[in-house]
Design a protein around this nucleic acid. Structure first.
Length: 495
RNA sequence: GGCCCUAUCGUCUAGCGGUCCAGGACGCCGCCCUCUCACGGCGGAAACAGGGGUUCGAGUCCCCUUAGGGCUACCA
């Protein structure tokens, strides 16, 4: 059997869209599942949309997500390099190749030169629109004899090359997720193949490159479905074997529209900054549009590779469900080592102004305890600062009504002074000592359970709920505990 | 407008003619665990868009309607 070769071919127009990541992921999974090759090609045929740094960003995002490819465009020491036997992998470097094939098409009579101006085309479309017709090129230049066209080009006239589609011809192809598709050429335009600036359009470039690069399966978003007949026709015109098509359902917004900026995060970078783990993003994305045979929800990348197939890809577009992503991300955070989450948390804690480099160096174990204390209660790394803010505050204000209510309890002064008392007996606290201390307080006051913990919790955190209390004590340390207790005694107990 | 695609719980989905009074997951609700929160465990509410066929039998096949999405560029 022929080796599977697939590609992800984004345009460098900015960042890597989360929907694009899923397309890349499915390509990747399919390639790995079949021991095939995965290629990254850059489709930069629209000079007007090119964004500086976009290629680098694309590659970095893919790398962060753990999507690795075998051929194409890579980043080495910050420089863009190409690897593989089918290059160049950046379309703007392949202009002469497209020119050659477009010439062949013209010679064969499958394409023609068109000299129509932008103005004429606009006017034509406007006229058709008013008449209620389908906006379509009217084929004016179709009948210009080749010799005449060549003379006009020689004279320096601007031109494009258009695909010469036969009239009323059914183009058929099979799609692995959609099944058989038939579209009549009467519903398709004589697509521009080569633009007046000498660049190919997507339609020409994708066919030529996929063929030349030996691509066996074209796996892309379903927005390409309507233009696939053009591509199929091109393969036929060139006499090439066409690839297998796989059109993936769209990843949608809550309003069922294509996922777009302004409704929140859409770039891989955004998700990274929001504190999502790459394996969580990958795990979640795999599930939008694909499902395994059993009811498994949590997958390692190896499991995904093993279980993935296009037969189980859905036809319907799926809404990007942040709640489920959060759940998956939380799962991975809980199952990660404290060390890893601590490393990831440090930049966020620095940004919040809670810690600095010196702090990290001197109190790394303390930071690990801090992270361990809240690790199970978070969905994203970015939530950490708000979760631990109360630890870093010098003084806390108690505004919570429930908390204020707790402080009215009869045993509150007894408990708090007992804690201070016991604190005198130790020089510094760790979890063990904090635990022992609470036990001591229990013994000396006779107060236990809720009546003991709640006043203490409120005094130290200002809230009636929060993480493990013993950890909070160890985190705060002797000095801060005393400060907070005395604050409460003064401000709320009039002691 | 034309063409193409799609249609199961709020969401992601399982279901490829009978084993479906429709299964799993997120979210939601309740209970348990527990100083609280969270985690975890257990349980619950929640869907086959509508109408025609085909068939002994339809969520599953066909048609229509409706709804949604995509495409309709010298953008990808």
């Amino acid at each position: 059997m022929k080796e599977v070769r697939v590609r992800f071919a984004p345009s460098p127009t900015g960042y890597l869209h989360i929907g694009g990541l899923r397309t890349a992921l499915y390509n990747y999974l399919f390639a790995r599942h079949n021991n095939g090759k995965f290629i990254l090609r850059i489709e930069d045929t629209d000079q007007t949309r090119y964004v500086e740094g976009a290629i680098e960003n694309l590659i970095e995002s893919l790398h962060w997500a753990g999507i690795e490819y075998d051929e194409g465009v890579f980043l080495e020491n910050g420089k863009i390099v190409e690897k593989g036997d089918y290059g160049p992998y950046i379309q703007s470097k392949r202009l002469d190749i497209y020119k050659k094939y477009v010439d062949e098409l013209v010679e064969k009579g499958h394409a023609y030169y068109c000299f129509c101006s932008k103005e004429r085309l606009d006017a034509l479309r406007e006229e058709q629109r008013i008449k209620g017709l389908v906006p379509k090129y009217d084929g004016l230049c179709r009948s210009i004899p080749l010799e005449e066209a060549k003379e006009r080009i020689a004279r320096g006239e601007e031109y494009v090359v258009r695909l010469k589609l036969p009239h009323n011809y059914d183009i058929k192809f099979h799609d692995l997720v959609r099944g058989d598709i038939v579209i009549n050429t009467n519903d398709i335009d004589d697509q521009v193949l080569l633009k007046s600036d000498g660049f190919p359009t997507y339609h020409l470039a994708v066919v030529v490159d996929d063929h030349l690069m030996g691509i066996t399966h074209v796996v892309r978003g379903e927005e390409w479905l309507p233009s696939t007949p053009k591509h199929v026709y091109l393969y036929e015109a060139f006499g090439w074997e066409k690839p297998t098509y796989v059109h993936l359902p769209t990843v949608l917004n809550k309003d069922r529209k294509k996922l777009s900026k302004r409704q929140g995060d859409v770039s891989v970078e955004d998700f990274r900054e929001s504190g999502y783990l790459p394996e969580a993003i990958i795990n979640y994305l795999a599930l939008v549009g694909w499902s395994p045979e059993d009811n498994q929800e949590i997958f390692s990348i190896e499991e995904l590779i093993e279980k993935f197939s296009f037969e189980r890809v859905a036809k319907t577009g799926g809404i990007f469900d942040k709640d489920k992503l959060n759940w998956i991300n939380g799962h991975y955070i809980r199952n990660s080592s404290v060390e890893r989450i601590t490393e990831l948390a440090i930049p966020y804690l620095k940004k919040a102004g809670f810690i600095d480099d010196k702090f990290v160096e001197e109190r790394y174990d303390w930071l690990k305890l801090l992270v361990r204390t809240i690790q199970e209660s978070i969905d994203t790394i970015a939530e950490i600062p708000e979760k631990v803010e109360f630890i870093f505050k010098e003084h806390i204000d108690i505004e919570d009504e429930e908390a204020l209510e707790v402080l009215k309890g009869e045993q509150v002064p007894v408990v708090l002074s007992a804690i201070k008392e016991e604190l005198n007996a130790v020089d510094e606290l760790d979890e063990e000592k904090a635990k022992a201390l609470i036990k001591q307080v229990q013994k000396s006051t006779g107060v236990k359970g809720k009546n003991l913990y709640m006043p203490a919790r409120v005094a130290l955190t200002g809230k009636t709920h929060g993480p493990e209390f013993v950890n909070i004590m160890a985190l705060l340390g002797k000095k801060n505990i005393i400060i907070r207790i005395e604050d409460v005694e003064k401000k709320y107990l009039n002691i």
